[in-house]
Design a protein around this nucleic acid. Structure first.
Length: 486
DNA sequence: TCTGGGGTCCTAGTGCCC
DNA sequence: TCTGGGGCACTAGGACCC
């Protein structure tokens, strides 16, 4: 482990919910919950105001509604979040070439590699400046952790939340970690936590005292070894900028269990289509086809088949998925189906089998491409919501709209042939609410507006704007200027 | 109460080849 | 010819992360 706290972990605060609050003035200071709104949805992010009621990520939406009945419940807008994330990642890459994104709202940065920091003081300054830049460019807050390793930087950013910065001084790590719960360490989830608790191990100190051999005996070689090292505050994992994709998969949970075997087969074909589309968009192909089935009782099983060579051929993936389904008993009903491809390569081996299968199914592929299944990233558009009327499905809660007379707004709710819209923009005062018929011709879906006012030359696309200017080196001064005000 | 979606990594069992 | 073991690929399941 290095001797300087120059690894930075950034974690945006309640990212999806904060982005929605920034976008919708009437929600600022209010409880906001973003997640799947169907009967089997779960919470993706809750605003800090909603967390007061006990709502948290991964909680079933029905439970969240009981705890916080007056919160605003919104469908995630991944395209919008991705564009903001792009702006943030651009700021991080201006600090160092070694940026490792973990998700849309989290990343590690090796400040030393970029020459952005050499010691604790310069690291703290770089972290503070980054937080100011993020606020100036996106209007959102992020928390920063600084330490000499990835594990400790992540723990530091967790302590910094919300809207703070924590630096762990080298030499203080063991004393800091010791009294913490084992669940603090990355890789210790509910199952491992329970396992350790049954062995009388609750804190990181107790973990370290248990010794490596005992942990290996309890948890297996890799996990035991890694956990012992972390308990000793040893973490040599480097920040890795480029991560290769290992698998591509799509899955759907259905509002109501599917019992009809024919329907199950059709859904598997649709998932195979979506999976292949994603595979091709990424320029990848793969050898191993995986079918995932979650049954009515939540038991999950996977079946996989490895081909002779990698493929991105729709007919081949469809046929393999169908063969795998043949080996699964679905009596009793299924609540989730998934299709994935792993063993990825960035080329395709056109073997005879693939060609033959392709010829057999050529007609089928044409028909499938015309089905126009919704994008996988938009839960409101998933085929699972088949019973919803098409007109109402257009008006997902939280999505932006434009009305010919009233201007820009967002969908507050819809049902029984009506859609309720609140007319406001990120920089307006909280707006008025109006209700329309779902087929009102004056109402149409709209793109999200930028959260921060942009200069005229930066117009055009949320992702392009300020982030592009920052990438070109011209936005940095404007962004960091806000630092002086903090 | 009732548990999403998209990933990664690890372990254990099995079969095959040398 | 038989047997054993190491190494590897494949398969299935589980834990974890955001």
């Amino acid at each position: 482990m290095r001797a300087t706290p120059t690894i930075l972990h950034l974690d945006m605060d309640a990212f999806f919910a904060s982005a929605e609050q920034a976008s919708k003035p009437s929600l600022r200071g209010k409880a906001v919950v973003v997640g799947g709104l169907g009967p089997r949805g779960v919470v993706a992010t809750a605003s800090y105001e909603a967390r007061v009621f006990g709502v948290h990520s991964a909680m079933p939406m029905a439970q969240a509604r009981r705890l916080a009945p007056n919160a605003a419940y919104l469908v995630p807008r991944f395209g919008f979040y991705r564009s903001i994330s792009g702006q943030v990642m651009t700021l991080l890459r201006a600090l160092s070439p070694l940026v490792e994104p973990l998700s849309l709202d989290e990343a590690f940065v090796d400040l030393e590699a970029g020459g952005a920091a050499r010691d604790a003081d310069s690291a703290r300054l770089a972290g503070a400046r980054l937080r100011a830049d993020i606020l100036a460019v996106t209007g959102l807050t992020g928390s920063v952790g600084l330490a000499a390793s990835k594990m400790l930087a992540k723990i530091a950013s967790e302590q910094a939340k919300p809207d703070g910065l924590v630096l762990i001084e080298p030499g203080t790590e063991r004393a800091l970690l010791g009294p913490m719960s084992v669940r603090t360490l990355p890789g210790v989830g509910p199952a491992t936590g329970d396992h350790l608790r049954r062995a009388g191990i609750h804190t990181v100190d107790e973990l370290a005292e248990a010794g490596e051999d005992e942990l290996v005996r309890l948890l297996g070689r890799a996990h035991g070894h890694a956990l012992h090292a972390m308990a000793m505050a040893h973490d040599e994992r480097p920040v890795v900028a480029e991560r290769e994709t290992k698998s591509v998969s799509v899955e759907d949970t259905y509002d109501v269990d599917i019992h009809d075997r024919t329907r199950v087969g059709l859904e598997v074909q649709r998932l195979a289509d979506r999976c292949v589309r994603r595979l091709r968009e990424a320029g990848l192909s793969g050898r191993t086809i995986v079918l995932k089935v979650r049954r009515y009782d939540f038991s999950t099983l996977t079946r996989s088949e490895t081909l002779r060579g990698p493929t991105d051929d729709l007919a081949v993936v469809r046929e393999a998925a169908a063969r795998l389904l043949d080996s699964v008993d679905t009596t009793g009903g299924v609540r989730l189906l998934g299709v994935g491809v792993s063993g990825l390569a960035d080329y395709t081996q056109e073997d005879l089998f693939a060609q033959a299968a392709g010829e057999r199914a050529a007609a089928g592929e044409g028909a499938a491409a015309g089905e126009g299944a919704g994008p996988a990233e938009e839960p409101a558009d998933q085929p699972a919501r088949e019973e919803a009327a098409p007109a109402e499905r257009r008006w997902a809660a939280g999505h932006d709209v434009r009305h010919a007379e009233h201007g820009h707004g967002w969908v507050q709710g819809s049902g029984i042939g009506r859609v309720t819209v609140r007319f406001e923009t990120p920089r307006s005062a909280p707006g008025r609410v109006r209700t329309f018929r779902v087929d009102d011709p004056a109402l149409e879906p709209a793109e999200p507006l930028p959260l921060v006012r942009r200069r005229p030359e930066e117009q055009g696309g949320v992702a392009g704007g300020v982030a592009g200017a920052v990438a070109a080196g011209e936005g940095e001064g404007a962004a960091t200027a806000a630092l002086g005000a903090l």
